[in-house]
Amino acid sequence: MQLALTHARYQLLETIRIPIAIFGSAFFPAAAMLFFVVPFAGKDPVAATFATASMVTFSVMSANIFSYGVGVAEDRQQPWDPFTRTLPAGPAPRFAGRVLAGLTITYLSLIPVVVIAATLTEARITPMAFLLALVTVAVISVPFTLMGLSIGYALPSKAAIVVAQLVFFPLAFGGGLLSAPGSAPGFVEAIAPYLPTRGAVELMWAAVGHYEPARLSLIMLGVWLVLLAALGGWAYRRDEGRRFS
């Protein structure tokens, strides 16, 4: 456990030394807040709160897909990675450290969205709901963490960057993150329940306001979890087998 914290600390240090990495995952959601949420939904407390929850989900997704997808793929290319495997520790502390660091980056990348929501919109949230939302962030990080890890372990870093960029926008748009609950374009409403972003954002909406998540979205989120866990596990073992067998 001590060792996991050590790994997390140095991974965070590595990330923070290149601040643009954190800035990147915080930028899109913050910009979307400023350009879409503030002018169009900012005056309506309920709409602004839901829209903020959507942007938080967006941010969680992009932070996880990028920090794991690109981060893991890059680490795999460095000879430092095999060196750490000669130290007297199994893969668990490094892995746990990576997840802790990823979660920390995720929370950091949310700060701009929350600050914009609190200062420039009418979005309101009770302290209890805020705490619940913080926990929900950790919960909905899980599928996107697994997605990032799958990308990172399966692909070389140049391909990982491209794939991360390719998946994150369709997931955000298709899952209805860019529109208020129930008011997305028709085809988005049709496909959204089948995307992991939908179940995730519905959980966020439920955390911050009166919203009943659709059963189909939650079931599909569970299906995605299982699929992504299997894919991530496969990619990890394949990588181990290739580099360390």
């Binding site: 290149i18 430092w80 000669t86």
Partner: peptide
């Protein structure tokens, strides 16, 4: 636990 290793390739985390 009682070994120390220097691999052939020097890969140190550049930002640390």
């Amino acid at each position: 636990r009682q070994i120390g290793v220097t691999p052939q390739e020097t890969g140190l985390p550049g930002t640390l």
